[in-house]
Design a binder for these strands. Structure first.
Length: 966
RNA sequence: GCCGGCGUGGCGGAACAGGCAGACGCAACGGAUUUAAAAUCCGUUUCUGGGUAACCAGAGUGUGGGUUCGAUUCCCACCGCCGGCACCA
C-alpha cells in the first residue's frame, strides 16, 4: 500500500462496526447525560437514495460521533416510512404486491445508507408497514378516538405548568340532561370522528386528499386534478389543539421561518361574531329586546345571519352582506324574483374547482338574493348577496362587507355599484398619496381629511389599516375618534351587552381529513354496526392486519379496495370493518417514540424509557415537512401528553432544516430560429417555452447549454466569450430526472468513497443553505483526505506503516499551539453545527503539518480523533496504524491547555482615520500607553502623523489602534 | 399582495460580540518532479492605476442614505433572488 484507498478501508470498518455492534445504544446508562438525535426517516422510494438524504444524515452522524467521544449516551436510530402512494402506484402498474416492492426498496435504502458509514443503532430499525409497528399506530388512533377535548379543563401538567384545556377520556364526557342519544353525543365529541364533508377527491390517485396535500387544485403528488365532492370521511379534531400548537412553539429551538409557517398555517385571528337579522317583517325591534334579555345564543335563530369579522370597529361601514354560495340560509332568504339567478350562480360555483374559485386575478362575481338584513348598530337595512369570494369553510361562511376598508369588499362594491361608506380616517400619508401629492411638501391635509369624511370613502382605493373611527355613531353609541384597538373593545362590549355579538377567535386550520381509499396503509381499528355507528376495537384485538388481496387497484370510484376483501370486512353478523385506510402521515406521527423501545410487544413504549429519552434533542430533516409532518406529529404528541403517555408537551426540542442540494451550475444561452444568439433579457418563459419577446408575436427560442469556458463575467451577468453582448443564464437548478442533473451517491462513493462524499456535503456551505453540487468540489475534499493519509502513513512503502516523520516526540510550542487551536475551533464548530468551517480548520492543520519534517505522534492522534466524526473510516484506519486496537468511536475527545491559545506576541493593525496604514508586532499583554507609543513610533505611521494634530486616539489593547487626525 | 430568509472575488463560501474583508476549497496561471502524462509538491490569484522588482496609490461586501473614530456586521429606503402562504373577512 499504499495511497489512500477508500474502497478498501470503508467496507472493512463498516463490517467491524456491524459485527461489534459498536453503536448499539443502552438505555439508562448511569453517570452519562443522554442525547436523542433524530433524522427524518425516509420514504424508501424506488429511485434509491439521492444526495439530499446524506446531507442531514451526515450532519447528525457527525454530531452523534462527537457526543459519544464526549461521554454522552447517544440514541441515533433509523427506519422506514414505508406506507404510501408511490409504492402502491408502482405495485398497480407492475402487478406486484406493495409489500414486495416496499421490502426491495427498503433493502436498497439500507444498503446505501450503510455504505455511508452512519453510526445508527440498527437494532432499533423500525418499519411503519410492519404489523408489529402499525399495531401501535392503531393503538394511538384508539387513544385519539377515545378522547374528547375539554377547553375549560384546568390542570397541572407533568412539568408543573398550569394549563387550561385538555384531551380527556371519552368516558368522562358529561352528557347533557336533555340529550336523548348519549352515544351519538359522545361520537360527535371524539377527537377522531366521521363526517360527511366536501372532500378533495382525486380520481387519478383513487383517493381523497387532505387540504394540505392539494396545491393549486392539483394533488401534491403527481399533479393530478382534484374535485370537490361530499363523502363520509374520518376526521381528526386537530383544531381543538390550535391554540396550543401556536403557543407551545415559543419554547422550541426552531428557526423563525418554520415557526412562522406553523403559526400561519394554524392562522389564528381574533375578532367578533355578530348577528344580523334578516329583514322580513316588522319584528326587528322585538328581536332586539329579546336578545338583550337572552344574550348571545350559541347558534343564531333561523332568520339570523351570523358573521365573523376581525374588524368589528368598522361595523358602521357595513353596507352589504355576503354569504358563501353554499350557505344554508341562502334558499330561505332568497326572494322569488331572484331565485333563478341565485340557483344558477350556486350551480356554476359548485362546478368550479377550488383553483378557479381562488384565482385572485379574476373579477369578483356574485348575485343579489333580494333579501335585506338589518345592521344592528344603526338599524339600516343592507342588501344580502352571495359570492364565491366568501368561503364556506372559514368563520361562519358569511361576512359583513365594509368596502371602504377592505380590498375584497371594495372590489366587489365597485363591480356591482354598491355603496361605500368611510368609517376610518386614513393616515396623512395615505391621503396625500391618494391625492397624488408627495408627503413632506407642506401640503395642508386638513381639506383632504374633510373631503374624505364627506365623500365617505369613495376614493380609488380602500384604506385597510388601523386608525381612528369616523362617521360611527348613533344616539346611544359612538366610536368616533376612538383608535382601532379601543373601538374594537368598545363595540365588542356593546354587542355583548345587546346580545348581538361576542369576541371570538377563528383559525384557518381545519380538522384533519384522515382517511384514504387505498390499500397500502394502516387499517382503522374500528368496526361499524348496522346503525352505522362506529365501535373502537380493544387493544387486545390489535393489530388489525391488512387482508391479502389479489387485486388492490383503486376502482377510480370512492369505494376503497379493502371492500374487495369480503371475508375480512365481515366482522360479525351485525358489524363490518372500516375499509378506508390511514394516510401516510400516520406512521410518521410517532416513530420517534417507537425507537426508544422498538421491540416491545406489550406496549407501544415503556414509560420509563420515554422519560429517559424524550424529548428528541435534535431533529434534522428537509423543510418540505415544515408544516404537515411536524404539525400532525405535534398534535398526536399533545393528545398523548394529555393522556400522560408522554411527559413532554412537545416532541422535538431543536429542529434544523438542511438546505436543498441543487445540480451543478449550468450556463444556458438562447438562439433564435436563424441561429443568432438572443440575450437573456429578451427571453421570457411562456407556458414553459422560452420565447424572444422582441419579435411580435414572440418566437420560440432554442435552449443551448454552454461550457464554463465559453462564458465570462461582465458586470453583474455572464456573457458569451465570443459575443459579449449576449447575456447567458448562470444558475443551478433543482436536481430532477427530466433535467438529467441528478447525482447518485452510489456513483460518488464508488469513485471517491463515502468519507469524501460525507466531507464534501458538509464542506459545501452552511447546513441550512441551498447550495449547488460540484464534482470538482468532491475532488477537492478527496485530495484533502489523501493528504491527511500521507501525513500519517508512509505511502510509498509496500506495507502499512507510519511515515518515518511521525515520531514519538514532544511537539514544539508552535505545533502544540496549532493542535490546541484546532481542537478548540473544531469542538466549537461541531457544537454549533458549523461543519464547513470545522473542516477548513482540519485542512489548515494538514497544510501546516505536511510541510514539517517531524510530526509528533500525539499531534497526529489528536488530529485523527478530530477528523473521525467527519471521515470515520479513514480515521479508524489511521488510528489503527498509529498503534491502537479496536475502534476510536468511544475514545475521549481531545482536550487542550487554554494557555496555548494565547500568543505571546500579536499583530495589531494601525489605522489613521479608520484606514489601515500599518501593522505592528507587540507583546500580547501590552497596555494602552505602550501600544500607542509603539504605533506612533512605527516607521510607516510616524511620517503620516508628522505635522498633524491627533484629535482622537482609539486604542484597544491587543486589537487595534486608530488615530483620528486633522 | 403578505410572511420569512439571503445578496461578499471567475465559483462554493469565511469573517462567532462594530475593529486587519476574502480563511478553507474549486477553477485559472506560473514553476518543480517526469522521457511524457496523471498523481504529487511549491508559488501567484478582489479590482483599477503605477513600478524591472520585493512594492506603492486608490477603490471595494446588491444600490442610495444614516449612526460611529471605525460598518460585510447596526438603522432607514430601494433593487434583485430564494422559500412559504395567498379572496381566511
Amino acid at each position: 500500500m499504499p495511497p489512500y484507498h477508500a474502497q478498501k478501508i470503508e467496507p472493512k470498518w463498516q463490517r467491524y462496526w456491524d459485527e461489534h455492534k459498536t453503536f448499539a445504544t443502552k438505555d439508562f446508562v448511569p453517570g452519562k447525560p443522554k442525547i436523542y438525535v433524530l433524522d427524518m426517516f425516509p420514504y424508501p422510494s424506488g429511485a434509491g437514495l439521492h444526495v439530499g438524504h446524506p446531507e442531514g444524515y451526515t450532519a447528525t452522524d457527525i454530531f452523534c460521533r462527537f457526543k459519544r467521544m464526549r461521554g454522552v449516551n447517544v440514541l441515533h436510530p433509523m427506519g422506514w416510512d414505508a406506507f404510501g402512494l408511490p409504492a402502491e402506484q408502482y405495485a398497480v402498474q407492475t402487478n406486484t404486491h406493495p409489500r414486495i416492492t416496499t421490502q426491495r426498496n427498503i433493502d436498497t435504502f439500507r444498503r446505501q445508507i450503510k455504505a455511508l458509514g452512519f453510526s445508527y443503532d440498527w437494532d432499533r430499525e423500525v418499519d411503519t408497514t410492519d404489523p408489529g409497528y402499525y399495531r401501535w399506530t392503531q393503538w394511538i388512533f384508539l387513544q385519539i378516538f377515545n378522547t374528547w377535548y375539554d377547553p375549560d379543563f384546568e390542570w397541572t401538567d407533568s412539568q408543573g405548568n398550569a394549563r387550561m384545556g385538555k384531551g380527556r377520556p371519552i368516558a368522562e364526557l358529561p352528557i347533557p340532561a336533555d340529550c336523548d342519544d348519549a352515544n351519538a353525543y359522545r361520537d360527535s365529541r371524539r377527537l377522531a370522528y366521521r363526517a360527511e364533508v366536501p372532500v378533495n377527491w382525486c380520481p387519478a390517485l383513487g383517493t381523497v386528499l387532505a387540504n394540505e396535500e392539494v396545491q393549486d387544485g392539483k394533488s401534491e403528488r403527481g399533479g393530478h386534478p382534484v374535485v370537490r365532492m361530499p363523502l363520509k370521511q374520518w376526521m381528526l379534531r386537530i383544531t381543538a389543539y390550535a391554540e396550543r400548537l401556536i403557543d407551545d412553539l415559543d419554547g422550541l429551538d426552531w428557526s423563525p421561518a418554520i415557526k412562522d409557517m406553523q403559526r400561519n398555517w394554524v392562522g389564528r385571528s381574533e375578532g367578533a361574531e355578530v348577528d344580523f337579522k334578516v329583514k322580513q317583517s316588522g319584528k326587528y325591534d322585538n328581536w332586539r329586546i329579546q336578545r338583550q334579555a337572552t344574550k348571545f345564543p350559541t347558534g343564531p335563530e333561523a332568520d339570523v345571519i351570523r358573521v365573523f369579522t376581525t374588524r368589528p370597529d368598522t361595523l358602521f361601514g357595513a353596507t352589504y352582506m355576503v354569504l358563501a354560495p353554499e350557505h344554508s340560509l341562502v334558499d330561505q332568504i332568497t326572494t322569488p324574483d331572484h331565485r333563478e339567478a341565485v340557483t344558477q350562480y350556486r350551480e356554476s360555483t359548485a362546478r368550479k374547482s377550488d383553483m378557479d374559485r381562488t384565482d385572485l386575478g379574476k373579477t369578483k362575481t356574485g348575485v343579489f338574493t333580494g333579501a335585506y338584513a338589518v345592521n344592528p348598530v344603526n338599524g339600516e337595512p343592507i342588501p344580502v348577496w352571495i359570492a364565491d369570494y366568501v368561503l364556506m369553510g372559514y368563520g361562519t361562511g358569511a361576512i359583513m362587507a365594509v368596502p371602504a376598508h377592505d380590498e375584497r369588499d371594495f372590489a366587489f362594491a365597485k363591480a356591482f355599484d354598491l355603496p361605500i361608506r368611510a368609517v376610518l380616517m386614513p393616515s396623512d400619508a395615505w391621503l396625500l398619496k391618494q391625492s397624488g401629492q408627495k408627503p413632506g411638501t407642506g401640503v395642508d391635509v386638513a381639506p383632504l381629511r374633510e373631503a374624505y369624511r364627506k365623500n365617505t370613502g369613495d376614493s380609488s382605493q380602500p384604506f385597510c389599516d388601523e386608525s381612528s373611527a369616523i362617521n360611527s355613531h348613533t344616539h346611544d353609541l359612538s366610536l368616533d375618534g376612538k383608535l382601532t384597538q379601543q373601538a374594537k373593545e368598545s363595540i365588542t362590549h356593546w354587542l355583548a351587552e345587546q346580545g348581538l355579538g361576542r369576541k371570538t377567535i377563528q383559525y384557518k386550520l381545519r380538522d384533519w381529513l384522515f382517511s384514504r381509499q387505498r390499500y397500502w396503509g394502516e387499517p382503522f381499528p374500528v368496526v361499524i354496526d348496522e346503525q352505522d355507528r362506529v365501535h373502537g376495537l380493544l387493544p387486545s384485538d390489535l393489530p388489525v392486519l391488512l387482508p391479502e388481496l389479489d387485486d388492490f387497484k383503486p376502482s377510480g370510484k370512492p369505494e376503497p379496495p379493502l371492500g374487495k376483501a369480503v371475508e375480512w370486512v365481515r366482522y360479525s353478523d351485525t358489524a363490518r370493518r372500516e375499509t378506508n385506510t390511514m394516510p401516510q402521515w400516520a406512521g410518521s406521527c410517532w416513530y420517534y417514540l417507537r425507537y426508544i423501545d422498538p421491540k416491545n410487544t406489550e406496549r407501544a413504549w415503556d414509560p420509563e424509557k420515554e422519560k429517559y429519552w424524550l424529548p428528541v434533542d435534535l431533529y434534522i430533516g428537509g423543510a418540505e415537512h415544515a408544516v404537515l409532518h411536524l404539525l400532525y406529529s405535534r398534535f398526536w404528541h399533545k393528545v398523548l401528553f394529555d393522556h400522560g403517555q408522554v411527559h413532554t408537551a412537545e416532541p422535538f426540542q431543536k429542529l434544523v432544516n438542511q438546505g436543498m442540494i441543487l445540480g451543478e451550475t449550468e450556463y444556458t444561452a438562447y438562439r433564435a430560429g436563424d441561429g443568432t444568439w438572443v440575450s437573456t433579457e429578451h427571453v421570457r418563459e411562456v407556458d414553459g417555452v422560452p420565447v424572444d419577446v422582441r419579435s411580435k408575436p414572440p418566437t420560440p427560442t432554442q435552449v443551448v447549454k454552454l461550457d464554463e469556458d465559453e462564458v465570462t463575467k461582465k458586470g453583474d451577468s455572464f456573457v458569451r466569450i465570443d459575443e459579449p453582448g449576449i447575456r447567458v443564464d448562470a444558475r443551478a437548478h433543482k436536481m430532477s430526472k427530466s433535467r438529467g442533473n441528478v447525482i447518485n451517491p452510489d456513483v460518488v462513493i464508488a469513485e471517491y468513497g463515502a468519507d469524501a462524499l460525507r466531507l464534501y456535503e458538509m464542506f459545501m456551505g452552511p447546513l441550512e443553505a441551498t447550495k449547488p453540487w460540484s464534482m470538482k468540489g468532491v475532488e477537492g475534499v478527496y485530495r484533502f483526505l489523501g493528504r491527511a493519509w500521507r501525513m500519517v502513513v508512509e505511502f510509498e512503502a509496500e506495507t502499512l506503516n507510519l511515515d518515518p516523520r511521525v515520531q514519538d516526540v514532544e511537539p514544539t510550542t508552535e505545533q502544540a499551539q496549532l493542535v490546541a487551536r484546532t481542537v478548540a475551533a473544531v469542538t466549537d464548530d461541531i457544537e454549533a453545527m458549523r461543519f464547513n468551517t470545522a473542516i477548513s480548520r482540519l485542512m489548515e492543520f494538514v497544510n501546516s503539518f505536511t510541510g514539517q519534517p517531524v510530526r509528533p505522534k500525539s499531534a497526529m492522534e489528536a488530529f485523527v480523533l478530530l477528523l473521525s466524526p467527519f471521515a470515520p473510516h479513514l480515521a479508524e484506519e489511521l488510528w489503527q496504524i498509529l498503534g491502537h486496537a479496536g475502534t476510536l468511536a468511544y475514545a475521549p475527545w481531545p482536550t487542550f491547555d487554554p494557555a496555548l491559545l494565547i500568543d505571546s506576541e500579536v499583530d495589531v493593525p494601525v489605522q489613521i482615520g479608520g484606514k489601515l496604514k500599518s501593522r505592528i508586532r507587540v507583546p500580547a499583554d501590552v497596555d494602552s500607553a505602550a501600544l500607542e507609543a509603539a504605533a506612533k513610533a512605527d516607521p510607516k505611521i510616524a511620517p503620516l502623523l508628522e505635522g498633524k494634530t491627533i484629535v482622537k486616539a482609539v486604542i484597544i489593547p491587543g486589537k487595534l489602534v486608530n488615530f483620528v487626525v486633522k
